[in-house]
Structure formats: C-alpha cells, structure tokens
Amino acid sequence: MLSRVAERVYWMGRYMERCENVARLVDVNTKLLLDLPRGVSVGWGTLVDISGGSDFYRRDLDSADERAVMRFLLADMNNPSSLMSSITYARENARITREILPSEVYTLVNDLYLYLKDRFPKGAARGERQALLEEVIEKVQQFTGMLAGCMSHNDAYSFLRLGRNLERADMTSRIVDVGTSRILTKALEETEANEPFENILWMSVLRSLSGYQMYRQHVLDRVNAEDVVMFLVQDSLFPRSVAHCLSELSEAFDRLPNSDNAQRVLASVRRQLKTADILQLIESGLHEYIDSIQSSIGEVHSEIADTWFLPQVQVTQ
C-alpha cells in the first residue's frame, strides 16, 4: 500500500473518531449543566482548554460563554479540532482514499458532512444540540461497524484502526480531565455537601463515554473518582479506556511490516499506564498526569509517521 494513502487513511480514522469524541465532550458538559447545584457553573473556557483548542480560540477564554464555546467546538472552521473541521477533513481524506474503501463508506462520510453543513451554525443552539450530537455518535459508530464488517482486514484497515484508537485514547484522557473539577468555576469543596455533586460529575463523564453500565457491572461499587479514573484509564476490557485503545494499537502494529520501533515506544507508554497509582495521583495532581498521557500518545503518533508515512526508501539495485 502507498505510504501517502496509508497516511490519509490513518487521518481519516482519526478525524472520524474525533467527530464522535468532540460530540461526547460537548455532551458531557451539556448533561452536567442540568444537574449542577445553584452557585456552581461550568467554566466554558476550561472546556476549550481540555479540547486542546486554546491556541485557536481568538477571544478571551475567561469570559467565554456557552454560545461562543459551542460555536467554537462544533461549527468553527478556524478550530482544526471542531466537529465541522473534523468531518470536513475526514471527508477530504475519504475522497482521496475512496478507491480502497468500500463505496458505502464514502457515502456515509459524505452524508454526515452534508448533514452537519446544513445544520450549522443553527445546530449549536441548546435545543437542537442533543439530537445533533446523538446523530454524530451514531453515524461514526455506523462507520466503524461498516469498516469492521465490509472491509478486508488488510493494511489499510490496520491504519484506520491505528487512527481510531490513537484518537480515542487521547480523547478519553481529555474527557477524564473534565472530571478533575477544573471545569467548575467554584471548587466543589467549597460547596456544602459536595459529595453528591462529585458523583454527578463522574456519572456524567461515564455516561458521555457510554460507560456507566459497563462501569457498574465491573466495579460493583457506587460511582467514585478513583474507580472511575481507574476504569477509564487502566481497564483492559472497556473499549474506550486508554489501556484498551493502546492494546488495539499494539495488535494493529503486529499486522504491519517493520513495526518494531513503534511497538517499542508503545510498550513504554503502556508500562507507565499500568504502573500508575491512581489514588496517589488524584491527591497529587491528576490533571498533570493526564497531560503526560497525552504527550506520550503524541510520541506514538510520531513513531507511526516516521515508520510508515515518510519511509527511508532503500533501493535494491
């Protein structure tokens, strides 16, 4: 398979997954809003920060309101990680690689693009937002299912899988970051009876990752910070946990040629993840730890690019 095409397919996987994850990130906040006690509100600027978009946010982050942030995260083409940017890039990559994808796949991506294009910026209003986000999540799930069920599990499929899981690992870590309370303008500790609200916060996080039931079955305990973070970061079975995504990367690497270096970088990230003491980190600074996961994921990406996208071409004479 061509290196250029491999790169495009990988990015298509990433951008489609990013669509779903931006939808989930916005969703968790929308749900959270409804349950918060009076006096505690969502710091919208922090959401921009968590999404990784603060470099592109042109206005003052501290005074950002719901409307402006929703626009920025969903519809703004100047934000390269917005939902609209992601679907536009996903479609562009699908267009370039459509000859190696099942034809229904391009149709699906194109449909989603047209759907969003028709609805923005109107769809960012709170009344329509929920339906729109659900539609996005559903369509991306359909996309993933269609590839799993209709595309040969060849090299191109491995690159899609790499893109999807790398993006997902990154975004799950960002959504966990929402739970570190930085999102709330007034620290929960200052409010009376903070515990129920902390639970609300973590429940919203779980729900937005469709993980509430899986968590309950697995943990058998009420929702609490330590268990939720362990579940979302270290659990090996939940498909949106960081650890699971990284094990998917490892399996995809196994199917590709010349993967030793990438496998080595990944192994070190997985080791760090497994040995992390979450309880300790919650006390000392979970947010910094999550930042470090994100930068490790960035290193895995660089290794993928070095190995397959910019091959050091050896000529056999």
Partner: peptide, 23 residues
Amino acid sequence: ELVEGSDLVVEDDHVFMRTINGL
C-alpha cells in the same frame, strides 16, 4: 493503486512506488 507523481520514483531506469513496505 491511484498514485500521484510524488508516490513514484525512478531508480536505475525502473519505476517504483513508495509503499509501507518500501519500494
């Protein structure tokens, strides 16, 4: 394969494409 010019390279008067396995 659908290729662009940058995917192809000529070595020793033979044409190769750059793939994930090399040339």
